[in-house]
Amino acid sequence: MSETIVVLISLMIIGALVAIETPRLLYSIISVGAVGFLLSIVFLFLSAPDLAITQMAVEVITLVLLLQCTGGLASEQVSDQGSLFSRAATGTILLVLALFGASMLADFPEFGRPVIDRFADTPSGIYLREGLQQTGAANIVTAVLLDFRAYDTLGEATVLFCAVMGALSVLRRQGRRQSEGSDQEGEEVT
């Protein structure tokens, strides 16, 4: 069980490295997609089918959109030969972060047993125990999302709404054409 997750996460890390190192943008997008699909399998093994479905569907749409927007472009080769000082600073920061992370690892709770279980009457425990009685929803995830924590869902819906409105108003064609004073079809200049 735990070994399976370790293998899947190692594959995800390999996919992420490939996405960074590969010369073509197309290959990067495909590797990022592989990372996302592996993540949805990890969710399945951690018994979170809701998240697995969402991750899978969002991954498909994201992959399609990324391919549509970037299709055929070669990624620009950037030589990252920074100055000695910037490389030393990056190394120092990474080292400090790794030290802090290593010191935190000792205090982590056991895998699969969240620290919130140590206390008696935590909200999550109450949700799990009384969710079905209080809401009537058999799927506890939906009960939490739409009843106990509906404010969060409203915030998420608002964020998505604002993002779509922003995309529509930035990428609209009408205003661009009028401000340039030309009315020819397909004449927009990036």
Binding site: D50, I61, Q68, A137, A138, T142
Partner: peptide, 24 residues
């Protein structure tokens, strides 16, 4: 969504995938 895994967000994404398929 309230009985089996899933819900408004994931189902909406899947339904959008049908229209995106038509678009592509």
């Amino acid at each position: 969504g309230h009985l089996t895994p899933g819900g408004g967000f994931s189902g909406g994404v899947i339904a959008a995938a049908a229209f995106v398929l038509i678009l592509l």
